[in-house]
Design a protein around this nucleic acid. Structure first.
Lengths: 342, 342
DNA sequence: TTGTACGCGTTATCAG
DNA sequence: CTGATAACGCGTACAA
């Protein structure tokens, strides 16, 4: 029935027996168009409910006014909160945001990048899969002049733009606190080996031990794929040790949640038999009865906002050198211990 | 430096001294093109790294292969989980998803709808603002043949497509459980008046009281704007009553979180001095020590998936009558009590 | 002050 | 088998 008969500039021109350019200019209030004509045009534009087809304009401008966001999983508060920040900034720039969930799957990540390139987004924000260790799919975007900024889960390279968290600062505070409380045997539950953050955690862990003159003991270092069952296994391994750690650094708050449950299930008491410190600072701690001693804030929102703002710099001033060589964005946010033991 | 010199079909044509149509057909493996020509074309296409400009194709097809999602807030797990489901389905249909956060602000919602229309999305999914009570901005989309499906927070109308939760079924189970446990004074903490769900809650509340031969008492009915401070005020009002309720139906799990905290702060014990039942079934309950007696699952994921699939039916078969009159989607999911008291 | 012509990248139609 | 041309909706340099 209703044919796709959307009002166009052409339609208006026909009705008024003027040219499309006149209509176009009239609609934009161009000074060179006579007042009467302008009014007449605007009048029927109003009447027939004309509204410019942005996608046509974008096509012509060879821009889409859209940025792409690639993240592992929307269901994780960390990422949805980041996305929320991104959308905020994009909206201020009159940009749209399209999303792609990699689901921590490298192949999917590649497909999503491909798709975003096909759609000619004007820029891309990425938080990597835990399995991403090559970056050609992103290189490809350079060919299309599509700027990329990584955040949080970033490649281990120097020729890219990223914003991430320096976990050390907060961790040092936390560690000092543990040592002061008398902990001498401090374990580590780390994440998947391929994640850059995992390596970082080890480094920090070592550094902190050293800083406090504590020995390194491989027995109390375990890791998890981040799957729930694996989290439980990890903590259980530690609990089963003859000489178990009295405190544990944990990859993130989600893992700690499972650890706490497992400790309770084992008939032990959190913060007495064993204490935890982890990374993320989930908003729910506020409501929990049993929490880690401290959590190292990761600033999902700040990270994403900074990344997005830089992305827009690159988009708005192409050729200004942003994102190339010297002015690479390599923003590292100092982390911060949030003390829950008070 | 690098001019926007992306390889196009035209470029290939020039290099080979053939027409663009030949190139186009060769690229698509059209049978009418000679094998040699086809090969030659594909060869340099490969060489110069040609990739079709989808946005040009979409422009020509007058489709964007993009759907819009309008939700109050990405930071709420309920909505991010819904969005996750939407993105999943869209991806299967090779569609993109653009998002808009209304932040529960009616004016923003209008702007977002406008924006999505400007961008000519092929369809829209909406969960309303708590202040939305008029729907002209959506009517407008009809003019552009952009189908709309509402989910969860839906308009109180019959001439639209929606999927929502019937909260009654789960609630009846929960209520039966309360009564069986001896509760006779059951209060209500409701949400903002403008939200359709608020009215629904009252109806259910009344119905359940009646079903169980309990009297209605205005004193134990309060409401909150959903802001934290307001949540606390609401529960405190109930706690301050001479004869306070022994159990309370609460608008949703987020409000309960604040209630529980307030109860503890008042030196009372949850599930002893006062019990709660609410709506949402947050994933974190699993990890909490203090939880409501039960939570009525809202099925964020299911709702959004069903809504999205119907949206694609409308998109894929326009004129098939979907979304008009008889085949309006008015899918109501029966809710389900999740019992946490075991 | 207004109109003509062109370009954005692609596909479809019609001719040859 | 291949090419020229129109069309999608709009903006704009150039011409009148």
């Amino acid at each position: 029935m209703q044919k796709n008969k959307l009002p166009t500039i052409k339609e208006i021109a026909k009705r008024l027996n003027v040219s499309v350019s006149t209509v176009s200019r009239a609609l934009h209030g161009h000074p060179s168009i006579g007042l009467v004509t302008t009014m007449r045009v605007q009048k029927i534009a109003e009447e027939i409910g004309y509204e410019a087809n942005k996608s046509a304009i974008h096509f012509k401008e060879r821009k889409t006014y859209t940025i792409g966001v690639i993240i592992p999983n929307l269901s994780e508060p960390f990422f949805s909160s980041a996305l929320s920040g991104i959308e905020d900034i994009a909206e201020k720039h009159n940009y749209n945001v399209i999303i792609g969930q990699s689901l921590d799957n490298f192949e999917r990540e590649k497909r999503i990048v491909e798709n975003m390139k096909d759609h000619r987004v004007d820029g891309v924000l990425v938080s990597l899969t835990k399995d991403t260790s090559t970056y050609e799919h992103f290189e490809n975007l350079k060919k299309y002049n599509i700027p990329v900024v990584f955040f949080d889960r970033v490649p281990a390279r120097k020729d890219i733009n990223f914003v991430a968290c320096n976990l050390l600062s907060g961790m040092l505070q936390a560690m000092a606190k543990l040592v002061k409380a008398g902990h001498k045997r401090i374990g580590l539950i780390n994440g998947p080996a391929k994640l850059a953050a995992t390596l970082q955690r080890v480094e920090i862990y070592f550094k902190c031990l050293k800083e406090n003159n504590l020995p390194i003991d491989q027995d109390i270092m375990v890791s998890t794929s981040l799957a729930k069952s694996d989290n439980v296994k990890a903590i259980q391994k530690l609990l089963a040790l003859d000489e178990r750690p009295t405190a544990v650094i944990v990859f993130n708050d989600y893992v700690v949640l499972d650890c706490i449950a497992a400790v309770k299930a084992a008939g032990l008491e959190v913060n007495k038999d064993i204490s935890f410190i982890s990374f993320a600072n989930l908003p729910i701690w506020e409501y929990m009865d049993t929490l880690p001693l401290a959590s190292i804030e990761q600033f999902a929102h700040s990270q994403s906002v900074i990344a997005t703002e830089y992305l827009f710099k690159m988009i708005d001033e192409p050729g200004a050198g942003y994102g190339t060589d010297k002015p690479y964005l390599q923003h590292v946010i100092d982390s911060e211990m949030i003390d829950y033991s008070l």
